[in-house]
C-alpha cells in the first residue's frame, strides 16, 4: 500500500519522495467519505450532535490518520507512535470515526457514541478511549500539552511527531498563544498544529464573536512555518502535510496548517442550513443526509 511507504519511510528532516498521486487522493477521499458516513450514523444515535463539525473536518482527519500518522492500530500506546491530540473535545464524533477508520476502535462500537458506559463520550477524553491522547474540551489546552509532549519526546531521543488538532475558536484562548510562543522558542520542529477554520463558534460566526483574522499573519509572526489551504480539498491537504513533513526536524520551526473548512461539508442539506455550533437534524433527515453524502461522493468519483 502506498500509505505504508509514505508513513514508514519518513526519516527526520529529509525531503519525502512523495507526490499527490491519484492513488493517494482516492484513498484519502474514500476514507473521508467513510468518516462522514460514520459521523452521520453516530449523530443519528444521539439525535443531534456535532455532526456539522465532523463533516467539515473529515478531510483533515482522513489525511492525518490515513496518510501521515505512524501508529499501530492494535497497540495504541506504542512508544514510537506519532501523537494526535484533539483539543476540541466536541469534535470527538469525527475523531472516533477516524479512529474506527484507522482500526483503533471497532466500527461496531461507534453506535455507543455518547451513551451510558460507552468508551466514546460526547466530549473526547484520554481516559475513556484508545487512541485518544488527551482530554480536550476545555479549549486552549491541546497546544500547551503538545509543546510538553514534543519536548519530552525530543529529550528522550524519539523522532515521533506531534499533531495538535485545534479549531479557530481556540485561537480566542490566550493559552494557545502562550504555547505558540513556547513551541517557537524551543524550536519544536516535530510539532504540527492543524487549525480547523470553519469560521463558526458557539455564539455565532467567529468574526462576530472575537475576530481572529488575520490568522496567517499571526502564526507567521509567531515564527511558525505557516500554510493555509482549503481544508476540504484532499489534494491541497496532502500537499500541505507533505510540506510540513519535509521540513519536520527535531530542532526546527514548528509547523501550522490552517484549514478553511465548511461546516456540514459533503451533505448539501447541512451545508446550506443556517450554521450552528450544535446543529439540529430531524429524525427523518438522517437518511437523506446519508443519501446526499453518497451521491456526492460517487458523483465525484465517477466524474
Amino acid at each position: 500500500m502506498p500509505t505504508d511507504t509514505v508513513q514508514d519511510a519518513a526519516p527526520q528532516g529529509q525531503t519525502l519522495q512523495t507526490a499527490v498521486t491519484p492513488e493517494r487522493l482516492e484513498k484519502i477521499s474514500a476514507a473521508a467519505y467513510r468518516i462522514r458516513h460514520h459521523a452521520l450514523n453516530m449523530g443519528e444515535v444521539q439525535g443531534q450532535g456535532y455532526v456539522g463539525q465532523a463533516l467539515g473536518a473529515a478531510d483533515m482527519l482522513a489525511t492525518v490518520y490515513g496518510d501521515q500518522l505512524n501508529f499501530r492500530a492494535g497497540d495504541p500506546h506504542w512508544e514510537a507512535r506519532d501523537r494526535f491530540l484533539l483539543s476540541t473535545g466536541h469534535y470527538a464524533i469525527g475523531h472516533y470515526a477516524a479512529l474506527a477508520e484507522a482500526g483503533i476502535v471497532p466500527v461496531e462500537e461507534l453506535e455507543t457514541y455518547g451513551s451510558d458506559d460507552s468508551r466514546l463520550p460526547m466530549s473526547g477524553m484520554s481516559t475513556y478511549t484508545p487512541g485518544m491522547e488527551i482530554s480536550g474540551g476545555s479549549l486552549g489546552h491541546g497546544l500547551t500539552i503538545a509543546v510538553g509532549m514534543a519536548l519530552g519526546l525530543r529529550y528522550q531521543g524519539s523522532s515521533a511527531r506531534v499533531f495538535n488538532f485545534l479549531s479557530d475558536g481556540e485561537l480566542d484562548e490566550g493559552s494557545t498563544w502562550e504555547a505558540a510562543m513556547g513551541a517557537h522558542h524551543h524550536q519544536l520542529g516535530n510539532l504540527t498544529a492543524m487549525v480547523d477554520i470553519n469560521a463558526l463558534q458557539a455564539d455565532g460566526k467567529t468574526d462576530t464573536v472575537l475576530r481572529t483574522e488575520p490568522v496567517t499573519e499571526k502564526w507567521e509572526s509567531f515564527g511558525w512555518y505557516t500554510q493555509r489551504v482549503d481544508g476540504n480539498d484532499v489534494g491541497a491537504l496532502l500537499a500541505a502535510f507533505d510540506n510540513a513533513a519535509a521540513q519536520a526536524a527535531a530542532v526546527g520551526r514548528p509547523s501550522v496548517i490552517l484549514c478553511d473548512t465548511k461546516v456540514g461539508r459533503g451533505v448539501p442539506l447541512l451545508e446550506n442550513r443556517e450554521k450552528a455550533h450544535f446543529m439540529r437534524i430531524e429524525e427523518n433527515e438522517w437518511q437523506t443526509c446519508r443519501e446526499q453524502l453518497t451521491a456526492g461522493y460517487e458523483g465525484k468519483a465517477s466524474a
Binding site: I145, V147, G148, A150, Y155, Q156, S158, S175
Partner: peptide, 28 residues
C-alpha cells in the same frame, strides 16, 4: 541544563507542557 525547560511567564503553558512531558513518561 538539558533537563530543564524554561517556559516563560506563561503558567497555562507551564502546566499544560508539564502534563505533556509526563505523558511521554517523564517526571516533571
Amino acid at each position: 541544563p538539558e533537563r530543564f525547560f524554561q517556559m516563560g511567564m506563561a503558567e497555562q503553558l507551564l502546566f499544560g507542557a508539564a502534563a505533556g512531558l509526563a505523558e511521554t513518561g517523564l517526571v516533571p
